Amino acid sequence: MNNNYLGVVVYSKAGRDTDRKFVVLDIINDEYVYISDGDLRKVEKPKRKKIKHLFFTNIVFNDMISKRTVSNSEIRKFLQSLGTNKEA
């Protein structure tokens, strides 16, 4: 299991949420993580997503790592501040 996934900004590559930005909230196992965007997928009910269906960026939400608990509004504001470009 890779703990380096926590707080990383990801884009969905598959499903009805394709090309949406999310933040990795938790790691379930080697195949799945929990993700949230603070809008459609709230922190209280994150989406379970296969790692192979995600595009990982080099962008990390540092508040997620330092506080370990974040609010929906903090995630929304952070993701909106990134814009719409996919960054590797």
Rank of each mutant, 00 (worst) to 15 (best):
M1T: 08
N2D: 11
N3Y: 03
N4H: 02
Y5W: 09
G7R: 04
V10A: 07
V10R: 02
K13E: 13
K13C: 06
A14E: 12
A14C: 07
G15W: 06
R16D: 07
D17S: 11
D19M: 08
R20D: 05
R20N: 11
R20C: 12
K21Y: 00
F22M: 09
V23Q: 03
D26Q: 05
D26Y: 10
D26R: 11
I27N: 04
E31N: 12
Y32V: 05
Y32T: 08
V33I: 12
V33E: 09
V33P: 14
Y34D: 07
S36M: 01
S36D: 05
D37Y: 01
D37K: 01
D37P: 01
V43T: 06
V43N: 02
E44V: 09
E44T: 11
E44L: 09
E44N: 07
K47C: 08
K50C: 13
K52T: 14
H53F: 09
L54N: 11
F56C: 01
F56L: 12
T57P: 01
N58W: 04
I59K: 02
I59N: 05
V60D: 07
V60W: 05
N62W: 08
N62H: 12
N62Q: 15
D63T: 10
D63I: 07
M64H: 10
I65R: 15
S66C: 10
K67I: 03
K67F: 06
R68T: 06
R68Y: 08
T69I: 11
S71K: 02
S73P: 03
E74L: 00
I75W: 00
I75S: 00
L79S: 04
Q80E: 09
Q80F: 14
S81M: 01
T84H: 11
N85S: 10
N85T: 14
K86W: 06
E87D: 12
A88C: 13
A88R: 12
